[in-house]
Structures are given as C-alpha cells and as structure tokens.
C-alpha cells in the first residue's frame, strides 16, 4: 500500500524538480505555480505513504535509516514550502528539490527489504532522538541550498559579468539571512537529537561511539555546524559562513551515506 503512494510521491517530486528548473530558465508565473502544486502533491502523497507504512509496521516509520531518510525528505519538503513562502525566494525549489529527489530515491531503493526492528531499539526516547535529528537535518538541507545560492550569486557579482543566474537569484543579504536562520533553526534540533542519542546509546550498549561510523561522523558534522554558528555570532558573514554550510552538509550526507552503506548500529 505505502509503496504505491511513495512511488507516486517520488513521481510528483520528479515533476516538481523539472518545473523548478524550468522556472529558473523561464520565469513564467504558471510554471512556478505548477512547481508549487507538484511539490505540495508530492508531500501529501508522501504523508499518506508514511502513515500507511507506520500502520503496516505498527510503529513510527523511523526504525531503519532508510525509513528515517524518507521522513527527513518529508520534513525537508515541508520546510522548503514554508521558507519559500516566508522569504519570497522563488527559485529555492530548484536548489532543494534535487536533494529531495536523491534522498527519496536512495531511501526507496533501500525500502524493498523492510527490516525487522533490532530488539535494542525501543522506547519513546529513541523516537524523539531520531525525530529531532531529522528536523535538524532538514533545516541543514535548506541551509545548504541557501549557501549554494549565496556562493553562486557572489560569484556572479565578483565576476562583474552578469549571467542568467544574476537575474534569477535574490540579493546576497536575503540569501545570507536564509542560511543564518536555517542554521539557527537546525542546530538546536541536531544538538538535542545527538545528546539524546548519546545518552540512550550509553544506556543501551554501554558505549557511545564504538564501531558506529554514523555516530562518529554525525559528531564531526555537529562540530562543523557548532563552529559556523560560533563564527556567525562573532560576526562572520556571507562568504565564509556559506563555505562552512557546504562542508557541514557534506559531512551530514557522508554521515547518512555511512549509515546506509557501512555496517553499524544505525543500519
């Protein structure tokens, strides 16, 4: 049941990505509306898919990393729609939706074998740990998109030869605010999520990082974001903060990749 809806959702995300790219090339109001419509439809379909999956499993669909990534995608899309509306950055979709697409294809491919839940995985704290970390990851996906747009626009301005992107992308100040706000939103969620994970793992396995690449890498990502946030507070601006946002998200993607490909407790 959930597989049908998930496939339909992915189809809608593919369409949304296409329309978002088309909107960057040709700024027609109609294309933007179609992109928003496809995004919203994809999100609604994914909601149904996740509810159906949770129903089938009899627990929140967060028991494996593939499931968690699927939920992360769901949060990213929700945040994307909200931030786009709030900030008025209409090209945001073109930068966020490709990430959404890669993540959801990855998690859908892994979905075919629904894993039995590890006995050690139980208790409400676990779900809170995963849920908070996912909201953090979603905010950082937007942080990444904002930083990417910032660097592209900065490059245009530095090159002094305006190309198509110069006209399509918003001003640096708006983009910098977007990256700062998403960082400020994501960081507390990621921090609390990680702290809960550490406490819970300590209680369940007695050791925190032993033989789990995901836990180690997520700590590296956390350090990068913590450093960026500290720099921001000390007055970092645009350029440097944007580079750190890219590196931080790279570490997060590695983290999730490690969880999907390397053996460990998060598998």
């Amino acid at each position: 049941m959930h597989a049908i809806f998930l496939n339909l959702a992915i189809l809608a995300y593919v369409l949304a990505t296409g329309f978002s790219f088309a909107y960057v090339v040709q700024r027609e109001e109609l294309i933007h509306r179609l992109a928003s419509l496809a995004t919203g439809a994809g999100w609604a379909l994914q909601t149904v898919a996740l509810v159906a999956l949770g129903h089938e499993l009899g627990r929140p669909p967060l028991g494996s990393l593939a499931e968690a990534v699927s939920v992360a995608v769901w949060v990213i899309v929700l945040l994307e729609m909200w931030v786009e509306r709030r900030s008025g950055v209409r090209v945001l979709g073109a930068f966020v939706l490709p990430v959404v697409l890669v993540f959801s294809l990855k998690s859908a491919a892994a979905h075919h074998q629904l894993p039995a839940i590890v006995p050690a995985l139980s208790g409400a704290w676990l779900w809170v740990h995963i849920g908070l970390a996912l909201v953090g990851i979603a905010a950082f996906a937007l942080n990444f998109a904002g930083a990417l747009m910032y660097l592209l626009q900065e490059h245009q301005l530095k090159a002094r030869r305006p190309g198509a992107l110069y006209y399509r992308l918003p001003d640096l100040e708006t983009l910098d605010r977007l990256t700062y706000r998403t960082l400020a939103l994501g960081f507390p969620f990621l921090t609390t999520g990680l702290v809960l994970g550490v406490l819970w793992a300590g209680a369940a396995w007695g050791s925190v990082f032993a033989f789990d690449p995901l836990a180690l890498l997520s700590f590296v990502a956390w350090l990068i974001y913590a450093g960026t946030l500290a720099g921001r507070v000390l007055g970092w601006h645009g350029h440097r903060a944007a580079y750190f946002a890219l590196i931080g998200f790279g570490a997060l993607v590695l983290t999730l990749g490690a969880g999907l490909f390397l053996p460990g407790r998060h598998g």
């Binding site: 700024r27 626009q153 301005l157 006209y167 001003d171 640096l172 100040e173 708006t174």
Partner: peptide, 22 residues
C-alpha cells in the same frame, strides 16, 4: 521584466548595490 533592469550606468550601480545589500 522588460522594464526592470537598468539601462543607464548610474542606475545599474544602484541595482548592483541592491543585489549586494538587499
């Protein structure tokens, strides 16, 4: 956007400033 982008040097400078500072 046929009327949006500056076609004089001084207005072009203003638009650039807006792209930098908001």
């Amino acid at each position: 956007e046929i009327a949006r982008h500056a076609v004089s040097v001084s207005f072009a400078a203003v638009e650039l400033a807006k792209k930098i500072f908001g």
